[in-house]
């Protein structure tokens, strides 16, 4: 019973392979004689792919249904048949929501001031918000929201176990450079598949630290401008330049990069709902966070084994 995981996975694959082969052969056997070899080959491939997939899904489902202990459900399950994994907890999702609400407010009240001559800027400030007095007030409301997110996230990082774990997983590692290089090779057809990522890929690490940097610049310079009377004018000038430039950089990064990743990417279009329910499907986990997925499955198997050992032991004793 205590066979290593690898063995069990191999066994599983072997069984599925055999099953697939049998089914493929019997399917091909019933094909009409007129079928040309190319078509036969195609059908063979297709049936093979499907059987493998279906068998895997069925097995996983059964394992989840019968073998895994039922965990108390904290989170509402999205309406999906596929097994899902919680990626972002409630706390983290709430941080993200407060953050994007604040940032949207900040962008629509701030960006027009970088391009005051554009008619869209005038529309936003003058027509939509009724003038600069209002828009600067709304900007400060957004600023308070962003500052709160910053404080909240620091506390979350310091005080919660998940926050601490994720923070350490966020730290850039040599593997990220390797993964980046691997991705480039994959893009240029030099690798059959992309790199396998742990909980955070180099892309996600870049996103996270970009926001970190942005928050420091924006909150720092914004505070100096808010309390400008306390500082010399050159501090105000520097802050204004940095605030305006970093604001544009952040806005463009969000619109180009973040929107591509969570909206316009053909894999998630029109939008990934993870920000709302915090979950990834099993296939998403396998595809985007293969190493994390393997870890989770291994941990689960260990649990199962431990449970089975217990029953074995008690059974043995009685």
């Amino acid at each position: 019973m205590n066979k290593p995981l690898n063995n069990r996975m191999q066994q599983r694959e072997k069984i599925i392979d055999q099953l697939t082969e049998n089914l493929v052969e019997s399917t091909v056997a019933v094909l009409p004689k007129e079928c040309d070899p190319d078509t036969r080959k195609k059908i063979r491939h297709e049936v093979s792919d499907r059987i493998t997939f279906e068998a895997n899904v069925a097995l996983n489902e059964m394992v989840t249904k019968y073998c895994l202990p039922e965990t108390p459900r904290e989170e509402k399950q999205p309406e999906q048949e596929e097994r899902t994994f919680l990626r972002f907890g409630k706390n983290f999702r709430a941080q993200h929501m407060l953050m994007f609400v604040s940032v949207i407010i900040l962008i629509i009240t701030g960006m027009p001031l970088k391009f005051p001559e554009l008619s869209i800027s005038k529309f936003l400030i003058i027509d939509l918000m009724g003038g600069l007095e209002n828009s600067t007030l709304i900007h400060r409301v957004g600023a308070v929201g962003l500052i709160l997110v910053g404080i909240w996230h620091l506390l979350y990082t310091a005080l919660t176990a998940i926050g601490r774990r994720d923070f350490f997983l966020m730290i850039p590692m040599p593997k990220d450079i390797k993964d980046f290089w691997h991705t480039m090779l994959y893009f240029f057809g030099r690798r059959a598949s992309g790199p396998k990522f742990a909980r955070f890929s180099f892309i996600e690490k870049f996103d996270y630290w970009a926001v970190y940097w942005g928050m420091i610049i924006m909150i720092g310079s914004g505070s100096i401008m808010w309390f400008k009377e306390l500082f010399p004018k050159f501090a105000f000038d520097i802050s204004r330049e940095a605030h305006s430039d970093e604001g544009l950089l952040a806005t463009l990064s969000i619109v180009v990069w973040h929107f591509y990743n969570v909206h316009f990417n053909p894999g998630v279009f029109p939008m990934s709902w993870t920000w709302w329910h915090g979950r990834l499907t099993e296939s998403e986990m396998k595809h985007h966070h293969a190493l994390e997925y393997a870890e989770i499955i291994e941990a689960e198997s260990k649990e199962i084994r431990a449970g089975q050992n217990e029953t074995d032991n008690t059974g043995g004793e009685s």
């Binding site: 050159f234 330049e241 430039d245 950089l249």
Partner: peptide, 29 residues
């Protein structure tokens, strides 16, 4: 609060640190 140049141009090299911040952000962006 009022110490320092009033009409400053971040795109002019005379503005010192302001110019380098502006340039730096341009390159970064």
């Amino acid at each position: 609060f009022t110490s320092g140049q009033i009409h400053v141009d971040p795109h002019s090299e005379e503005s010192g640190i302001l110019y380098y911040i502006s340039k730096g952000f341009l390159i970064l962006t």
